[in-house]
Amino acid sequence: MSRHLEVREVLQRIATSARTLVGAEYAALGVPDDHGGFAQFVVDGISDRQWRAIGPLPRQHGILAVMLKDSAPQRLDDVRQDPRFGGWPQAHPDMRAFLGVPILDGDEILGALFLANKHSLANKHSPADPTGGADRHAPFTAHDEHLLRILAAHAALALTNARLYERSRELTLVGERARIAHDLHDAVSQKLFSLRLTAQAASALVARDPDRARAELAEVSRLAAEAAEELRAVVVELRPAALDEDGLLPTLTSQVEVLNRAHTARVGFTHTRIHALPPAQEAAVLRVAQEALHNALRHSGAGSVRVVLGPGPGGCGALLTVSDDGRGFAPDEVRRAGRHLGLVSMRDRAAGVGGALRIESSPGRGTVVELEVPGG
């Protein structure tokens, strides 16, 4: 658990470890928010399809609420018979034997581990038993509870460490944003001020001195070009701090997880191993992925977005694909209307590293953004 620094990855590792440690069919770990729900909730032993069928995250009620308010473990032979049991959705698997242990940092409850359905020792390793030997009637033991409490103590340290790590990264990003704001102010704002004054002067001179007005407009054009170039230099120079620290795959993974928590659309990320890319190409891949995800989640109305990263043709470079099932658009109409949806920025980033950007979309058919960058 301590080898992982991303909070969600730590939570998943804790849930998986707990389930394996005491031989349970199902495990879950919930981290409460301040509004009667869960900031994070991970499960183990339930397929993605089952999890989607169950529906929204649970609220803090029944046994779950007890676990988040009381530091005492809860061990029940049949959770359904407990008077505090609040029921579960129709697609929820059948659970009887229950063991819950809070994850504590001093007196603060960071979260709670929930285990259900004890494995039968007689069938646990039997290949003929497709359930893995889960016996919903077998109770968890005092020894199981003891082991889980030890695990929860280690989990508290790992979770606290992961939270501190993510907080330090947030502070790094805040500092980076402050630096960018300072650079933008110094590099661009004075030129924009001069541009505005020159444009006002040209406007005043149009009627009485056309030749001088044309000269002022030429100066406006020159100042605008300089401002655009300096702005581009500031943006291109910026390389995300997380990219330097963690690399492309962990950074993309982390951003997809954040987007999954912030949006109702389901965002998936799959990848296969790619050879190391030059820093400029890694930054381009990340920025194009961010722009494509932003468009899909904010503008397309998609219910599902898929990000795939793997090697390019012949195993060299990288191929990024971001696809969604949203409403799509007609690229030519968007271009004629003067709306770009970040398409120009994505094409510029691709061209800047010798890559190629392809966009396929039509109304009602979703969108696919594909970036191919060559090997370093």
Rank of each mutant, 00 (worst) to 15 (best):
M346F: 02
V206G: 01
I63G: 05
Q74W: 00
A97C: 13
H275F: 04
S203F: 05
R347C: 02
S361H: 07
R306F: 10
V334L: 15
L151D: 09
E166I: 00
D34C: 02
L197D: 14
L249Y: 01
V305K: 03
V206M: 11
H185P: 01
G86D: 15
R8P: 00
E229K: 10
D332L: 13
V101L: 03
L157P: 02
S71W: 02
T272V: 09
G326Y: 08
S300N: 11
P58L: 09
T20I: 04
A181S: 11
A97R: 08
D44H: 11
T16P: 00
G342D: 01
S361A: 14
A152H: 04
A337C: 09
V334W: 07
R167E: 12
Q81F: 02
L286P: 01
Q40H: 12
A128Y: 13
L243H: 09
S47N: 09
P240M: 00
A39M: 03
V308E: 15
V322T: 04
L195Y: 03
F114M: 05
L217P: 00
V285G: 00
R136K: 14
G328M: 13
Q200T: 04
P279K: 08
R3G: 09
V206R: 14
L115P: 01
Q60E: 12
A284N: 05
T270I: 09
E333A: 13
G36L: 05
H143V: 03
A242F: 01
M1V: 11
D33R: 04
D77P: 02
L243F: 09
P331R: 07
L184N: 13
R96Q: 14
Q74S: 02
R349L: 15
A15H: 00
V234G: 07
A224N: 11
P32W: 06
V369K: 03
A265L: 07
L148G: 03
I54G: 00
A134N: 04
A213T: 06
H137F: 13
I46T: 08
H61E: 15
P210A: 12
G55F: 09
K69D: 13
D82W: 08
R349H: 14
A155M: 04
L197I: 08
R365N: 15
I14R: 01
L249C: 00
R149V: 11
D246C: 04
S362C: 08
R136H: 13
V235F: 14
F98W: 06
L104V: 13
L293R: 02
G355T: 08
A233I: 04
A18T: 14
R13M: 06
P89D: 10
N161W: 12
R163C: 08
L171Q: 10
H137K: 12
D70F: 06
A350M: 06
E282Y: 04
Q200D: 12
L21R: 05
A280V: 15
R327C: 10
R177A: 14
S361F: 08
G37T: 15
G86R: 07
G364H: 10
L343Q: 07
E25V: 05
R327T: 14
V288G: 03
A351M: 04
G303W: 07
S126Q: 09
P363D: 10
Y165V: 06
S17K: 14
A27M: 08
G36E: 04
H263A: 03
D70W: 05
D332F: 08
R335Y: 03
G106W: 06
